[in-house]
Design a protein around this nucleic acid. Structure first.
Lengths: 343, 343
DNA sequence: ACCTTCTCAGTAAACGTTTTCTGCCCATTT
DNA sequence: AAATGGGCAGAAAACGTTTACTGAGAAGGT
């Protein structure tokens, strides 16, 4: 195997020292004569030289890497996040390193730990992991040891302690979704809730409660059903709901993905949406407008969430002070999965 | 900022040389006394030492990185691929570096070029880029310069020259999809084709033609419509098809994603699937079983495709000979978007 | 003429690992 | 008692960059 071309080859070719090559190629504003610059640039081009990121990262204290943890890159929500992080990173010359945690706290710890070897300049936690105290503490230590090495950390849609976060107000979001169906006249409203160990779940449940309370409607535990944040989870939760035999005319799902699962379950049960049951989701993923009926959902720009997170990290790396809590707004997208009650 | 802990700190703490620490921690089978080993391990644990991936990559000739180019990580098909690559890489101690090319040949070149700085041990091209000769040549040079540096390259579902590939037989796949609706009695069968500069598109079109020919059906260009490999693309193509006013009772879409776009367009036009038009897709993505009606589609294990690619790269890195062409099999999943004609 | 200041480019010391040589010490063999 | 060899660990040279010094020469001020 032929040896790779390094900076010394370029230096030899251009008959200058490696220092000069480095200075010219890393675009520092170091003064250098036009002729030398041209000779070096030409040599680099001719040899097709690309600086080695590893050697560079070793001596600069920056790696140019922004790490991202997501629950599952194959989940449409996190795929959107990943894409936005990738784009925003790349636009600033950074590179995104993505890892899935599968909503498993142990795996999340392991992922964070494994990130340390790459000492990323930034770390974004997308999607809460399980937030029990012991885990948070372990995570804090793991993240802490990253931070010690200069990594800037930002959390996306979760509430860890001491880490800047960017999020939507999940309470308000779920409240908006619920109030929408209430305002359509629905009274018996089921809620498909995520696993309780995610703050997103508890926040959205709280929003649902607040909406009921605001309209003087009773809170009925029989209308609450819990599931995983997947299609399957939404499907099963809805089956369970149906099995209970309780009466309801609307369903608020914690996420679009769960809502689509619910749609499948309702369809299988011969319950038409929206004629017999109204359905509302949260997230406004691309897939929401493509199902039948198109899903009424609470929309917030998922990609903006991620882009803002990257921006914060970049700012922090530049030494700027960054806000501890950035809250993005949202709005309701009324499509065809909801309609007034009674018909 | 406190200095990061390096191998010399561990060495000092354990009162041994850095060489010894390195040998113990990188698990070489170098002989070392149990007491020394224990002391070093304990010191590393106490200092919470994690070896620096960059320094390590510099001296070993391996980076532990497998790079992956996809059209768009937010596209469900490529998200599946990405997830599988991530899992398979991680299982072998590698790390996946993912970049989206947006189906843009220029961006693909740029991505490949930018990968070189990281000199990945492996490179997987998922999803063809545009395959015109000039581009392939440029790409070959880019990839070539990667290969020179020791990167093993594998292509996923495309036909570049001289690069081992793993794929399904796209001709046979499309043929199976088409023959399915033919065998149901359909005679006027539309085909939603991808952009012609992807080999996947031309292969699948060819499969469609072969199926028609095999059953003695005429090929009617009016039934062929071209679009991007997106929901939007499938939607628009179907609208165009409808605008033509040609008669058809079945639609074969090049991908599930396009098929779902078609579903939306047909629904909007008041054309019921499958009562008036049968629809079949290709890929069997998770989303295919969740739309209404659940999509009949040709299924191949997308994740296996990616996992095999990683396996090949690992084999190649171990110096083993790897096959130039690996073809995975597929099968038809009949769901409810297709039905016999005439009703 | 001499001192200062600039402009430009080279020398060499990092950065944090791995790995090739050495070589010590002790046990075993002759 | 000398020679051999194996187990163990240290010294030092990479790996490919960046960057703090250093310094040569030219230009400009007194």
């Amino acid at each position: 195997m032929t040896r790779r071309v390094s900076i010394v080859d370029v230096a030899r070719e251009a008959r200058v020292s490696v220092a000069t090559v480095s200075r010219i190629l890393s675009n520092s504003d170091y003064p250098v004569s036009p002729e030398t610059r041209a000779r070096v640039l030409e040599a680099a081009r001719r040899l097709d030289y690309v600086p080695d990121a590893f050697a560079r990262a070793l001596v600069r204290r920056r790696t140019g890497i922004i790490a991202l943890t997501v629950h599952d890159i194959a989940d449409p929500y996190f795929a959107e996040i990943a894409r936005a992080v990738e784009d925003a990173s790349q636009a600033s010359g950074y590179r995104a390193l993505i890892c899935s945690t599968d909503r498993d706290p142990d795996k999340e710890l392991q992922v964070v730990r494994s990130f340390r070897a790459f000492r990323p300049d930034g770390l974004i936690f997308a999607g809460g992991c399980v937030e029990d105290a012991a885990h948070v503490e372990k995570l804090r230590r793991g993240v802490g040891s990253l931070a010690v090495r200069g990594t800037r950390v930002v959390a996306l849609s979760r509430h860890p302690t001491g880490v800047p976060m960017v999020r939507v107000d999940n309470v308000a979001v779920a409240r908006a979704a619920t109030e929408h169906v209430i305002s359509l006249g629905h009274r018996r409203i089921a809620f498909i809730c995520g696993q309780p160990n995610f703050t997103t779940s508890t926040d959205r449940l709280e929003g649902y409660r607040q909406a009921l309370a605001a309209y003087g409607l009773p809170f009925d535990p029989d209308l609450i059903v819990i599931g995983w944040y997947t299609w399957e989870g939404g499907y099963r939760a809805t089956r369970e709901l149906l099995a209970r035999g309780v009466d309801f005319s609307a369903v608020v799902a914690s996420t679009d993905i769960m809502a689509i699962g619910a749609l499948v379950a309702l369809r299988e049960a011969g319950i038409h949406v929206p004629d017999r049951v109204s359905l509302v989701g949260i997230n406004d993923l691309p897939v929401a407008s493509v199902v039948d009926p198109p899903l009424t959902t609470v929309s917030f720009r998922v990609r903006d969430l991620a882009a803002v997170a990257v921006r914060l990290i970049l700012d922090a790396l530049d030494g700027r002070e960054i806000p501890q809590d950035t809250v993005l707004d949202f709005d309701l997208k009324v499509r065809r999965s909801t309609r007034p009650f009674p018909v």
